[in-house]
């Protein structure tokens, strides 16, 4: 059966992996290619590379970093940050990304989702949605690294993205990101129940327990950054715990 993916996320700024809470107070966490290689050895199912400075500073994601990560690992690499046009996506794919993630630019121009799906395939087209709670059972899309509240309903937006050709939703809870208090399971369940495409849970995990909860809520994959960078838990540790919790994960070569 299809297993749940465990995905370390590398937030990259200026060619280095950084970590911080809500993209503030960033600290250095290492070299992207070295970390990616270590995570593959530990059993990571995919690597996500996000250029956290791209949107705020209006610059294109670093193709050089993508190429280095690509050469280092034999697992899928998804890249996001600052993708505004189909040509931006094409450059990242040429540099070695397997999938490209769009966020703020897709909210401003939903046609971008269709363009990427048509030109590069549905499976290449990931839409990252940052969502913040508006009240019980309600979430709105936030953009531009959390600085702009759009008023757009996050569940309706995820359905629109799927109909435009998105092949996956990378769903980050803006309220939980960096807090370690667990994924927003209500948000996750609402979006996973509304679309047929895979949904990746992001924002708030501090351990395998949170990840198992996310899978129960309907996530097809779980993403985390700081818990892996800090070295407190390896990907292997997390997958063993998920397996014990009854979540199907790829354990081959990890025993």
């Amino acid at each position: 059966m299809l297993t749940v993916r465990v995905i370390p996320c590398l937030d990259v700024r200026g060619g280095r992996v950084v970590k911080g809470v809500k993209f503030q107070g960033l600290r250095d966490a290492g070299d992207p290619a070295e970390l990616a290689e270590r995570y593959e050895r530990e059993g990571a199912d995919e690597i996500v590379v996000l250029d956290v400075s791209a949107t705020a500073e209006e610059r294109a994601a670093a193709c050089g970093t993508v190429a280095e990560v690509r050469h280092a690992v034999g697992i899928p690499v998804t890249v996001g940050g600052g993708v505004r046009t189909g040509d931006d996506a094409g450059r990242l794919l040429d540099a070695g990304a397997d999938r490209v993630s769009v966020n703020s630019a897709a909210v401003a121009n939903p046609g971008l989702v269709r363009e990427i799906a048509d030109r590069f395939g549905v499976q290449c087209c990931v839409v990252a949605i940052d969502a913040a709670a508006t009240g019980p059972g309600g979430w709105e899309v936030v953009t531009n690294a959390g600085t702009h509240r759009t008023g757009i309903d996050a569940v309706a937006w995820s359905q629109r993205c799927a109909s435009l050709g998105a092949g996956e939703i990378l769903l980050t809870s803006w309220d939980r990101d960096g807090t370690g208090s667990g994924y927003d399971l209500g948000l996750l369940g609402a979006v996973a129940g509304a679309v047929r495409i895979p949904v990746v849970a992001s924002g708030g995990a501090s351990g395998p327990g949170h990840m198992a909860e996310a899978c129960d809520a309907g996530a097809d994959a779980v993403l985390a950054a700081s818990i892996f960078h800090d070295g407190v838990l390896t990907v292997r540790d997390v997958k063993r715990d998920l397996e014990r919790a009854g979540v199907p994960v790829r354990m081959e070569g990890l025993s």
Binding site: L2, T3, R5, D45, Q123, G167, R196, P198, D220, R250
Partner: peptide, 28 residues
């Protein structure tokens, strides 16, 4: 099921295969 299938799934190879084996592989 979720579509596209994105992620790792198991293949069971015919015992007569020379290149293919049983194992977990990545699909999209």
């Amino acid at each position: 099921v979720s579509v596209p299938q994105l992620g790792w799934n198991r293949i069971e190879a015919d015992p007569g295969c020379r290149i293919l084996r049983n194992g977990e592989v990545y699909y999209a």
